[in-house]
Structure formats: structure tokens, C-alpha cells
Design a protein around this nucleic acid. Sequence first.
RNA 1: GGCCUGGUAGCCAAGUGGUAAGGCAGAGCUCUGCAAAAGCUCUAUACGCCGGUUCAAUUCCGGCCCAGGCCUCCA
Length: 535
Amino acid sequence: MTESAAPSSFAPLSLYDTLSATKKPLALQEPGRCKLYVCGPTVYDMSHIGHARAAVVPDILVRLLRASGLEVVYVRNITDVEDKIIKRAADEGVSPEVITTRYTDAYHDDLDALHCLRPDIEPRVTDNIPQIVALIERLVANELAYPVDGDVYYRVARFEHYGALSKRSLDDMQAGARVEINERKESPLDFVLWKGAKPGEPQWPSPWGPGRPGWHIECSAMSLRHLGETFDLHAGGRDLIFPHHENEIAQSQGACGPGTFARHWLHNGFIDFAGEKMSKSLGNFFTIREVRNLYLPEALRYFLLGVHYRSGLNFDVEAPCPSCRHLLDPEQQQASHCPACAAPLELARLRAHVRFPGLEEADDRVAYIYDTLLRCQRALATTSEPDAPQQNIVASAVSGMLPGFLAALRDDLNTAAAIAALSEPLREVNRQLEFKKKPEIAGRRPTLARFLADMPAISQHLGLFADDPTTYLRERRDRKAARLRLDVAEVERLLRMREAARAKKDWKEADRLRAELGLLGATLQDSAEGSTWTL
RNA sequence: GGCCUGGUAGCCAAGUGGUAAGGCAGAGCUCUGCAAAAGCUCUAUACGCCGGUUCAAUUCCGGCCCAGGCCUCCA
């Protein structure tokens, strides 16, 4: 990492805070140390790309904090007790542990592929039952919670700041109440902390009888255990603001007192499908795994970072008719036959032929950057121009790249602007790479060298572009070939034939073979070193 | 109904009280046996509507329209 990428003191970082509803500088409780809690997944199914975003956003934050020289304590929980897990286990006739283990492993595998750093601590609810029970006991002692027939509920009306995070008053909530009828509760707004056991469900002993924790108490208990009564940052998806995070505040401050718990709240926006939260027509959502089968994970990560984290991100899906390629709109996707060619439509086939234009654009862009890296490495390795190491002749676009990039990130994690800050330097480097025939151009070598020297810091912050370019580009091509159902061996065979024709300057035959390859979907690049192909 | 976001060129998307990043798509050119890739140039008088504050608003305030989210598990 270069000097400029690793400031010795903590560079100012401003973040939007949901509680105060303002962008403000991150002020740490302890200098040099940042304690962060992120709400993790409930592990009952494969994670979708929304989960990916909720993991990538805090990952960018952690990377930035660490690169700024801070020690970060990063906690992200796994929720492994929950209704949906129990249901899934019952459906499959296996124990809940089978379900939670399977999907925890898959979650880790997906996030590793997306280059998300593992949290330092990843507590599970099932390992924290005594802590949860103890916390509930404190709330009962404070008269903020009350047991009823084996359940324990939180007495919302007793917590004066309830609604501060989600900006709504108790009256608002009462008014719009779509709350289930439960005459055990003193108020419909009260929420459950402990659920009395039902036959056949996981259960643990407690002062109120056997049972299991409610949905919100776990995060209060686990953050308290691992980060203490007060910590710096709490992150999660926007939808968690109410009621989950509102309830966490009520629980934690109810037990530990005013002014405790998270000092700063970070919430990421949602991923939308076709302008709505989810696409009903194509079966609601796409999993990370499905996307990984089609594209390299860096494409997805780049795509997720292309938009500011608080904005909604539209995940465009194009569904062509598998038979005639007519683009089906959402309504037509539900039809039994294609309106253009009358071929029968079925969901599974539709999903298999789906395209993601935004992801493809991201995929191309990532490849462009890797390609620039590769060309740059080669140019520096092969040219013998005299060294001219004066820093002042580095092209300004390139010398300004890293500072501009970091400034954008430090302004509320503006990854969109940070990525945009790479465009001009990239163009400048490629421009200089064009001067093959006059390598004596002033500043060329120092500029390329500087670019190559600064890119690792950018990779480190973004979790992107850290692979060997040749390897990445080859894997990408192979993945794309598989996606387009292209016969790689056949392409290679035709390519060799064309090489032979070109050697004989038989342009007619070479062009014929290129046309044939084009039909297969391959695009050729001829160079002095020979021909290669891409898609 | 309550609360909350957002509406920027063909599409995606930053940002700002003083005349608007970046990407994609499109056009021409350079390079090339021809291409591709890369680069260069160009392209759009893009800031939902109506008022107000101001010397000046896309940026602040009010109203309206539209879209979306939350109010139930949800990243």
C-alpha cells in the first residue's frame, strides 16, 4: 500500500446516521477502535442478492476503517432459532441444526466469493440463550417486561423513546395498527421477548418455563456480550429500522440505561426488481448462487457498489422467450404461451434464460479494468525506455486517482463517486498505453508505474481487482462461454485453423473462419503475439 | 389512513445556492490486411410540476403530481 493510502491518524469519515437523520462525522467512543454490530441472516434458505448488499455495505465500511489505521471489532450474528427454520426442518423431516448448518455454510461460501471479510465474531443465538434469559430478567426487574403464561412481553408504553429511530409516535402506530390480536398482551404494540415452548419445537429452560427467545432480543444480548453496553455502529437493512432496531434500542437501553447502545445507525437500501421490492412474475428473487453460476462474483460486487448504499438499487431482469427471444414483459411472463411465437412458457425455463443487463455492464467494466492492469503490467515489463522517475511528470489524472477515490469513500461511503473517480485515470493509462511506437513520451513510465502502485490500495478498499488479471480474464471468458452454451474446444480448433491461414496471409480464409467463430459468439483480437478471443 | 424516501439527458447514476461527475447505448475518426480491443472527437441547452425566499435554486421552504418503502417475518 502506498503512503497516501494509509494515513497514520484517523482520517475523518462522515456517515449518515438514521437516528439523528443527518450525515455526521463518525466519533468513536474509544480513539483508534471501532466497535460494529451488523444484523446477520436467519439461516433457513439460500441468500439472495439483497443479503449480498447488506453484507457488502458494512464490508466496505470495515475495509475503510481498517485502512485508516483503526482497530475494528466486527460482530455479525447468525440467527439460528426462528419460525421459518423450524418449519423448514419439519418440511424436510430433519432437525433444525441440519437446516441452519447447511445455510450458514452456504452463506459463508457466497460471501467469501463476494470478497466480504469475515466478521471477527459471529455469534449464534443458540450459543447465547443464558445471556438472553439474563437480559430479559433485567427487563422484568425494571418493569419493562412482563411474563404471561410462559411468554414474556416488552411493555412498549413504558419506554419513553420508543419510535425515535423510525420517527413515529406511539399514536401513529396505534392508528395504523395491523397488529394481531393477542389478549395476553397489555397493548397490541408490545412485542415478545420469550415464547413459551410448543411441543416439538426447540426449547430451553427459563424462569418463565421452557421456551425460546423472541425475534429481537438476540441482537441486544449478543451485542452486549461482545461489544459492551455502548458501541459505535450498528448496521442493517432499511427494513430492520422498524420494528427490529427500534425494539433493540428499547431492550438494550431498557436494561442498561439511557445513552447506551449504538451511537450511530447505518441502514442500506433495498434491491428492487422491475421497480418493486420483488418480482412476483419470475418467482420473487434471485439468489447469490444463481448469479454466481452465470457471472464471476466480482461483477455482482461491482454492480452493488455502483450505487450509493442508501439508495434503492434496481436489479433489471430481462426475460426473453426461450424460443423466439421476444422480450417478455412481467405480464407476459405469467402467460402460458409466448405472445410472439406462441411457444409454451414455463417458469423454470424462463429463469434459465434470464438476462441481467446491469450485471453484464458491470461485468464488462470489471474486465476493462483487469485488462488495463494487464496491459500496463506488460508494458512496464517489456519496454526498455529509460527510467524517468520524477514524480512531477506523472499524469495528473493518475496522481489524483487515489486521493479522489478516498475522498469519495470518506463522504458517507460514496462508492458510486469513488468508482467514477477511476474513470479518468483509467482512460489516461490506456491513452499512454497507445503510444507503443513512441515510448519516449514524457512521463509514460512513471505514470503507468504510479497507476500500478496505487491500484492495490483501491483493490483493498473495494474488495475488487485483486486477482491476477490473466487468470481473472480467462475465468470470466470460460464462465461466459458456459452461460452462452458455447463450445470452447470448437472455438479453439477454428482459431488454430485461422492462425494458420493468417500465417499464409490467406485473408479470405481467415475472414471466413472469423465469421464462423462470430456465429458461435466468439470475438477475435489479433495482435503481434497472435490471436485471442473473447465473448 | 400514518410515517419515510426518491423523481437528474435514450438507459443507469453522482452531486451542488452561482450555470451539472461517471458508466452504458449512439455517430465519426485513429490504429488494424480487414476487424476486435484501446484511444480521440461528438452527441445531447438532463435536474417531475407550481409557487416562495435569494442578486442567484436543480440544490433551501411550501403545495401538487408520480413512483417506491415501512407500519406483519423480511437485508
